[in-house]
């Protein structure tokens, strides 16, 4: 199967300016050399703690932020260098669902205006067809037609998230970046939205890049899971494999830290020392060596390259000196 999305050595650095002349004094390496592929209709989960660069990665892929380097190939075309006019046309193929259902909808526009805006922008169909399409999309996300004249503030978080999903679906995208789509929702509503996303994927063959800090949610929706730490993808494996056989010491610690909702199974916890270093001056060598319980002297000297430790047909890539 050919890849829908191929990300090669993607980098996004933010300059830090300082001093009187506002010269660039440092670089925050939010995303620093990330590569992966995503096949059509599959879901790649992306986990990591705040500041690891997972949201920036999502935005750099959609070119909501211009990458500093590397390539983003969507159906073979490099989004990173596409001129603006062609980029607008490519936006039909890729969409985003946001975390905060209160900030992601324009407060002074009706639900119908919000959902049809993508159709208006790209000049799809006649006005009547667009109006019909809005109703169709509302139905897909499980909302009544009557809500279309209402304003976002009249809805609960879960319903707003459905409206945001309808907007993302309007252009029939092939790829959706979902950035913490259920983090702001309550438990009972969260499973409704997760099931909706799963249904859309099943029925419409949309590929998802599912970004979340919540490992249990990622485990539930993803085919593959990538773990990020300080701008780097430290491990990438099929979901079941990653959760049952984590190889990178950071992944192990992360998995052991999740509170288990079962009082009889107290987790054996790997407690990490210290805090995540600042992405402004990440440690030399392996970014994780300062907190790694298994660190070797060599880890502070060279950056580990991803190696495949999986079985044939089930690639499992890990960037750690323990496996090189």
């Amino acid at each position: 199967m050919s890849a829908l999305l191929e990300v090669r050595d993607l980098r996004k650095h933010f300059p830090v300016r300082g001093g009187l002349l506002r010269r660039v004094v440092a670089q925050v390496k939010a995303v620093d050399g990330v590569s992966f592929t995503l096949e059509a209709g599959r879901t790649l989960g992306l986990v990591g703690e705040s500041g690891c660069g997972k949201s920036t990665l999502g935005r750099a892929i959609l070119r909501l932020q211009r990458p500093t380097g590397g390539q983003v190939l969507l159906e073979g075309r490099d989004l990173a260098t596409l001129p603006p006019a062609e980029l607008i046309a490519m936006r039909r193929e890729m969409q985003i669902i946001f975390q905060d259902p209160f900030a992601s909808l324009s407060p002074r526009r009706t639900v119908a205006q919000i959902i049809r805006e993508p159709l208006d922008v790209h000049g799809i169909g006649t006005p009547e067809e667009r109006a019909r399409r809005v109703l169709e999309l509302l139905d897909v996300v499980g909302m009544r037609a009557a809500v279309q004249d209402r304003y976002p503030h009249e809805f609960s978080g879960g319903q707003r998230q459905r409206i945001g999903i309808a907007r993302a679906l309007a252009l029939n995208p092939k790829l959706i970046v979902a950035d913490e789509p259920v983090s702001a929702l309550d438990v009972s509503v969260r499973s409704q939205v997760l099931n909706l996303i799963a249904k859309l994927q099943r029925e419409r063959g949309i590929a998802f890049l599912f970004i979340s800090h919540d490992l249990s949610v990622v485990r539930h929706v993803s085919d593959q899971v990538g773990v990020m730490y300080l701008g780097k993808l430290v491990e990438l494996a099929p979901t079941h494999e990653l959760f049952t056989n984590p190889r990178h010491p950071y992944t192990e610690a992360l998995l052991s830290a999740v509170p288990v909702p079962d009082p009889r199974r107290k987790a054996k916890r790997i407690v990490l020392a210290g805090d995540v270093p600042s992405p402004m001056n990440p440690p030399p060598g392996c970014p994780f060596h300062t907190r790694c319980p298994k660190a070797l002297p060599y880890c502070s000297q060279a950056v580990p390259q991803p190696v495949d430790v999986g079985s044939p047909g089930r690639p499992h890539s890990v960037a750690c000196h323990l496996y090189t």
Partner: peptide, 21 residues
């Protein structure tokens, strides 16, 4: 805010974003 980012993601031109959103 995310709704402005959403407009960018949809492909709304910049000046339309200023005046509409």
């Amino acid at each position: 805010l995310e709704f402005v980012e959403a407009a960018h993601a949809i492909g709304v031109p910049e000046y339309t974003i200023v005046f509409r959103h």
